[in-house]
Design a binder for these strands. Sequence first.
DNA 1: AAGCTTTACAACCGCGCATCT
DNA 2: TAGATGCGCGGTTGTAAAGCT
Length: 359
Amino acid sequence: MGRAPCCDKANVKKGPWSPEEDAKLKAYIEQYGTGGNWIALPQKIGLKRCGKSCRLRWLNYLRPNIKHGGFSEEEDNIICSLYISIGSRWSIIAAQLPGRTDNDIKNYWNTKLKKKLLGRRKQSSNIHRLSNQDPNDPHQPTGSDDNQLSQGLSNSAMERLQLHMQLQSLQNPFSFYNNPALWPKIHPLQEKMIQNMQASNGNPNLLMQPLLPPNPQPANEQSTVHQQDYPEISNTKGLEGLDNCLDGISASDGSVPFGNGDNLMDSTSTDAAVQPGSSFQGELDVFLNHKSSTTGGYPQEDQMVNQLDCFRDINGSKDSSIWWPTDFDAKSASSNSWDSTSVLQSNGMFQDFELGYPM
DNA sequence: AAGCTTTACAACCGCGCATCT
DNA sequence: TAGATGCGCGGTTGTAAAGCT
């Protein structure tokens, strides 16, 4: 079953494009355009390529005015701030960076920026942990409830959470993470998972701990999860709420990654997406350029990385996208990658965003 | 110098959504 | 209105180059 392939796979060439193919495709599109039908395009040109492949090649490589590599510090900042705020919506991020493609940004993030921000230790510790996994080891996770809970947690959400917390905890003692009054209500499933993590880890200074608001319930009720109270959250999707939680943090903790929503809404250029001189800009600078003023580094990092490891997806579950306002037309944003008008301002995105996730 | 590992980037794949018929 | 088709997106994979031992 499944969907029919978009082209005849057997008669379609795959792999790197030759200069001749590039020339054919570029010449045709420059002369005739795409004709609004990528699937038919390769046949018209005489290319043994899938239409989708042609489209990708054109959009990511052959299209005029494309910049490759050499991301500026400002671009780094924009990418980071947008990623923290909206996650892996690469097309939207790309729309804020003229000349950049979503694929380029995605690659840049995965290979450089992420490591730059989160540190390299995470990856190595992950590899170490995986390489040491013994399926017969009873002390290692199996198919427990905790794992099932963890399965719903996205890497994207965790990265965003981690990045945001790092930024917040750096220099601002009054930031969200140090102010319980600002903490959002957390879903009991999430709380239970975090408690389990704390219990298994034995470390009260768990990364996630700041997310836990003081629980007013009697002790004997704290671990009781009433699924019916949260009908929208299934077992497998329970942790998507963390995405919402994180987005709520980004949107309304008073120290929004963009400085504040108004800055963005009022911005008329991509430069305004990250206000130079803003506190967030400064925080980003610290991370991007290692300008740590007093600590000379990030002593929390190793601990945070270790703590995060127990969150890592076991089954490669995908990031949820439920946080995004459903009426936001992401496609219309992404399809205009070359429009310098900020998609964020034109769609009132952050207004919707804030309205959708009150605290 | 050889072999191995890591990095960077291009390309592919599957799926959701919008549009068309 | 339902099915078919195409587009666009995000995740993942493949591979050449660079770096390391």
